[in-house]
């Protein structure tokens, strides 16, 4: 497979996942806002913090009002991680590799982009839920089309790698931000008035019902444990790392290479995954959740760099 194609298909997966994550962040906050009208003003700042782009936001908007945040994260075409920008970038990547992906994948990402681009901003700001739900659905439809209509070949595994690395990163960011807000309560039991925020955190990851089946009681420790370390929930960081590792191994197999530690991305991802599986939630909470997640994000970036160096930026000898 062409190196340029590997890069484009990986980012296709990443961008669609990122659009979905942003829609999740926003949607869950809207939901929360309805429960806590008094705290509405304060509740939007952390959403911006999740993206890591607070400075960009402040350069464009005076205050983190609901509408300003929505506008920035959903419709701002000059902001690279807004929903419309992500879907636009996904579509451009898809367009550059149409000969590699299936027609159904192209149609799904093309329609998702055209729908977001043509959405009436004012109407969405007035009633955002259906719109955000549609963005999530579009992402799922794309994922479904990818799973069902594209050969599970090297390119497919690159797309999956992109998606899983992105998801691990985004899960870590939303946990990080929420826990920073709710820090005093993490070690003790849930303060009742905060329980709703922990529920929101679960909901933003589509994790609420699955969490209930596992833990029933909502405690901060168990919520963090579920989102970071659950072995079976597909949005948990642990699941993402394990699945990403298996796709990387499949990429190596497709290339007739051994997925051993001499290959830089394999070395980095495997040691990250193995270390993560040995980690206990209580250790993390004792050492500091923020530091752990921060390190994780840095190491995820390093995996991305290694993928690029090894498979894309090959130099003529």
């Amino acid at each position: 497979m062409l190196s340029r194609v590997a890069d484009a298909v990986l980012w296709l997966g990443r961008y669609v996942e990122r659009a979905e994550s942003v829609a999740r962040f926003v949607d869950v906050n809207l939901y929360l806002e309805l429960d806590r009208p008094d705290a509405a003003a304060a509740a939007w700042e952390p959403i911006i913090a999740t993206t890591g782009d607070s400075a960009l936001f402040r350069a464009r908007h005076a205050a983190a009002s609901r509408d300003a945040v929505l506008q920035f994260l959903v419709f701002d075409r000059t902001y690279a991680s807004s929903v419309v920008s992500c879907l636009g970038a996904a579509r451009e990547n898809a367009r550059s590799i149409r000969e590699v992906i299936s027609l159904e994948m192209w149609e799904a990402v093309n329609r998702a982009y055209l729908d977001v681009r043509s959405a009436d901003e004012a109407a969405v700001l007035a009633a955002p839920h259906d719109f955000l739900a549609a963005v999530k659905q579009a992402s799922h439809q794309f994922m479904g089309a990818t799973h069902l209509t594209m050969t599970h070949n090297e390119a497919w595994h690159f797309a999956r790698l992109g998606r899983l690395l992105e998801r691990a990163d985004k899960t870590s960011r939303i946990v990080d931000v929420k826990c920073f807000q709710l820090a005093p309560t993490v070690e003790g039991g849930a303060v009742p008035e905060h329980e709703i925020e922990w529920l929101a955190l679960l909901r933003s990851n589509s994790a609420f019902e699955m969490y209930r089946k596992r833990h029933r009681r909502v405690t901060p420790r168990d919520v963090v444990d579920f989102l970071l370390f659950d072995a079976e929930f597909p949005r948990s960081i642990r699941s993402c790392l394990r699945e990403a590792e298996s796709s990387l191994a499949a990429v190596c197999r497709a290339q007739g290479r051994r997925a051993d530690a001499r290959l830089m991305p394999v070395e980095r991802l495997t040691s990250l995954r193995a270390g993560w599986e040995r980690t206990q939630v209580d250790d993390v909470l004792r050492r500091g959740l923020h530091e752990t997640l921060d390190t994780l994000q840095t190491r995820l970036n390093a995996v991305g760099d290694a993928l690029y160096q090894t498979f894309v930026a090959i130099a003529p000898s």
């Binding site: 497979m1 062409l2 190196s3 340029r4 194609v5 590997a6 590799i97 149409r98 000969e99 090297e154 990429v251 290339q255 007739g256 290479r257 498979f311 894309v312 090959i314 003529p316 000898s317």
Partner: peptide, 27 residues
């Protein structure tokens, strides 16, 4: 390219070496 089942390449995907033309792939 899709209909023929062949690679679509751009100039930067190709390189000349040893008197032949090569494309940069993940392998």
């Amino acid at each position: 390219a899709r209909q023929m089942g062949v690679e679509l390449v751009e100039g930067s995907d190709l390189a000349v070496r040893d008197g032949l033309v090569w494309m940069r792939t993940t392998r």
